[in-house]
Design a protein around this nucleic acid. Structure first.
Lengths: 118, 118
DNA sequence: GCAGTACATTGATGTCTGTCGATACGAGAC
DNA sequence: GTCTCGTATCGACAGACATCAATGTACTGC
């Protein structure tokens, strides 16, 4: 039999977390969730990866086209992409031998909301 | 003569960094700058501090009122506040024996802009 | 089946970061 | 001046993280 992963966690449901920081004081769990998402953006390599994905006309980019632009080894880029996917900021999709990555606009928008003024 | 600090660096000029991630691909230096600001928000304690400052009616909060709400030692809170100030997200002002902290709305707005869609 | 390509995972290493106790500094009160 | 209170800095430690070489896994083509 072929081993298949459970579909349950296929799409991260990490999208919207919190009301704006300035609306009411964050609870500790809310702060934890938000901090993890900001942590995913707190690395220059990951920011450039997100930027590469977000600026792409087609909306998705092959992993093979992400290694050279950021100037890191293939395993390092793969690691960073995983961090972004785990944070729910990016999705991945296998197409044949390649894996294509794309941003999750709703997730970035949720972070914008968290930073909004009162 | 009374010693006065130089006005040059009084207000951190770290405010606006970059065009939206989705507008054009970040350069490495831009990514570095942005990453530092997101890193300042990538900690639950600091997020709660920012939230405490941002939700305050008066717009500024005494350091003495920030220790208990976040449940960390006074040195730890002082450290986190320094990180936020260094990132340009928060300002500090001495008033007598106390130090008052406030958010820098323009800095948070700049981060929102960076996250904006195309 | 086998070989080759594309990506992920593992393991090791050096660096960064959050935390706290102890201590220093600055400002007001006396 | 001294004392006290509020805040910042120092030093140490443990845990987290970025990085890469080596290796594993999944897919395609033959």
């Amino acid at each position: 039999m072929t081993v298949r992963e459970l579909p349950v966690l296929d799409q991260p449901e990490v999208v919207a977390c919190c009301a704006p920081l300035a609306a009411e004081v964050l609870t500790a769990p809310e702060a934890d969730t938000l901090a993890k998402q900001f942590a995913a953006l707190a690395d220059p390599v990951r920011l450039r990866l997100v930027s590469l994905l977000a600026t792409d006309e087609g909306g998705a980019v092959c992993a093979c086209d992400l290694v050279e632009p950021v100037g890191r080894s293939q395993p390092t880029v793969s690691h960073h992409l995983k961090v972004l996917v785990d944070a729910g900021l990016v999705t991945s999709e296998r197409r044949g031998r390649n894996v294509w990555y794309a941003t999750v606009p709703a997730a970035l928008e949720a972070l914008r909301t968290a930073l909004a003024a009162r």
